[in-house]
Nucleic acid binder design. Structure first.
Length: 282
DNA sequence: CATTTCACCTGGTGGC
DNA sequence: TGCCACCAGGTGAAAT
């Protein structure tokens, strides 16, 4: 499900609930797909560490971890020595529950916290990924692409210069921009008035700047809406709490454009279903 | 190297 | 109700 705004909302919600808590016990499931780090090493690495904070980079959730046996009130407080990195894929959820709460099907990780809470990773489709990084051995996680919320006009334009692929496909490329997915790619192209199949390298400077601003505005609006329902999103049952953004084009095939009334079209770009208004977008 | 296609999974929906 | 085709907000490997 999740693109940048959803991941941001989840990371904030989880951070508010587990910051400062110590991982007492770790259970990991048998399916191999979710584990970029071998489960035995992950469990060994996580146990005893303190969750110093949880934040988002691109579509990744990064849990900063202190050394085992080092509480946040110690002098080394705030010093992350490891990370637990969660990617939700299409159907992943990161839940804060009690250890007694019923375990949902497709639960792949349970981190029981000394505080009496439990952090769970649930993912039916198993496109999500979990990774453990020991920062004494490896670099901290960094998304390859630029952050769409903060990138400037010059850097944004430079991402697409000379590229011959469709702008929609370029927006989805995580090594260019980190965090943009199918919904917000379509929505931002609508707001910028640009057709999804336009060659990225042929967009004018003005179009690129409209796109950068539209993307930022759409993402910020979605974060704003998600932020008001954080508690629902991460509750014990994993209830979805996001206000559905009033999409302009996404999944509105055949319905009238909210601006001009023309029927919204669906095409396939880069293997992904793509929606646009043939009148408003050129 | 850049770009495109496809496999990886389960579950929900809608047609027959 | 059952069966089936198709679709899903992501990504990385393989093919072109």
């Amino acid at each position: 499900m999740p693109e940048l705004p959803e991941v941001e909302t989840i990371a904030r919600g989880v951070d508010a609930r587990v910051r400062g808590h110590r991982i007492a016990e770790v259970w990991l499931g048998r399916h191999r797909e979710p584990f970029k780090t071998p489960p035995a090493r992950m469990a060994q690495g996580l146990e005893g560490r303190t969750l110093l904070g949880v934040h988002r980079t691109g579509k990744h959730i990064v849990c900063e971890l202190g050394s085992a046996g080092c509480s946040p009130s110690d002098e080394r407080a705030g010093q992350a020595t490891a990370q637990w990195i969660v990617h939700l894929g299409m159907t992943g959820r990161l839940l804060v529950t009690t250890p007694e709460a019923s375990v949902a099907p497709h639960t792949h990780a349970r981190l029981t916290l000394a505080s009496g809470r439990e952090l769970r990773f649930v993912d039916p489709r198993r496109f999500g990924r979990l990774e453990f990084r020991d920062l004494s051995r490896a670099q901290g996680f960094a998304a390859p692409g630029a952050e769409p919320l903060t990138i400037g006009a010059q850097d944004f334009a430079a991402l697409f210069r000379g590229r011959r692929l469709a702008i929609k496909a370029a927006l989805l490329n995580q090594s260019l921009l980190a965090g943009v997915g199918n919904i917000y790619a379509d929505e931002s192209l609508f707001h910028a008035g640009i057709r999804p199949r336009r060659m990225a390298g042929r967009l004018t400077r003005a179009e690129l700047e409209r796109l950068r601003r539209a993307l930022r505005q759409v993402l910020e609006q979605a974060i704003g809406l998600g932020g008001s329902s954080v508690s629902d999103y991460v509750d014990a049952d994993g209830v979805r709490g996001f206000f559905q953004l009033e999409h302009r084009v996404y999944q509105r095939t055949g319905q009238p454009c909210r601006v001009c009334g023309t029927a919204i079209r669906r095409i396939v770009v880069g293997g992904r279903s793509t929606h646009y208004c043939p009148m408003c977008q050129r």
